[in-house]
Amino acid sequence: MNKEEFLSGVKEKLEGLPPKELEESLAYYREMIEDRMEDGMQEEEAVAAMGSVEEAASQILDGMSLPKLVKAKVKLSRTLRAWEIALLIAGSPVWVPLLVCIVLVFFTFYVVVASLLFTIHALNLALAVAGIAGIASAILQFATNRGLGGGLTLGAAIFSTGASVLLFLGSRHVDKAFIHLAKRFGIWIKSLFLRRFEAMEQLEGQKGTSI
């Protein structure tokens, strides 16, 4: 593959990007190939050192922030045809509530999980407080010569404290799992945009070649 073939290959893969962004990426690879050739490499060799066209394209996308990706995607959808826009508007009574619904479902899921966590922590705190109060009360009862009551209270207090410690250890794992899940969800959202972006590009590319 020669230099121009490589560059036009990358360009084709990133057709939907803002022109400035695209130009900058291509200028970078052009400079890199030319510098290698100046260093004594053959053109083909220098191009081969760049890796595959796909890798170059995906790294360029990777370096872009999510807002930029979304903007680029919006730009792509601006080339919609009139009937597509009409269809979107006509369909809005269906897809707008649907979208709102999906967002709400995710939000609800988060709230439910978060409140579950809150409940666990509240229970944990209650057990700890009950344990400490119980021990204090037991000491008081022992001091006032009510040994039987004191013993019972002490037993309950130790049980409560133990349960709270166990719950605390367990709840840390649950917390971690929740944070992990939230992170994964964020990454998933970003990948959704990336994937859709790539799919749109392929679509655009096919349109380009068929005409």
Partner: peptide, 21 residues
């Protein structure tokens, strides 16, 4: 770009595609 890659080469291999982002 290319000079950076050459300077780093004795320590770590970094490709053009990795350097760009």
């Amino acid at each position: 770009g290319y000079q950076i890659i050459k300077d780093l080469r004795p320590y770590v291999t970094i490709s053009e595609s990795t350097l760009y982002p």
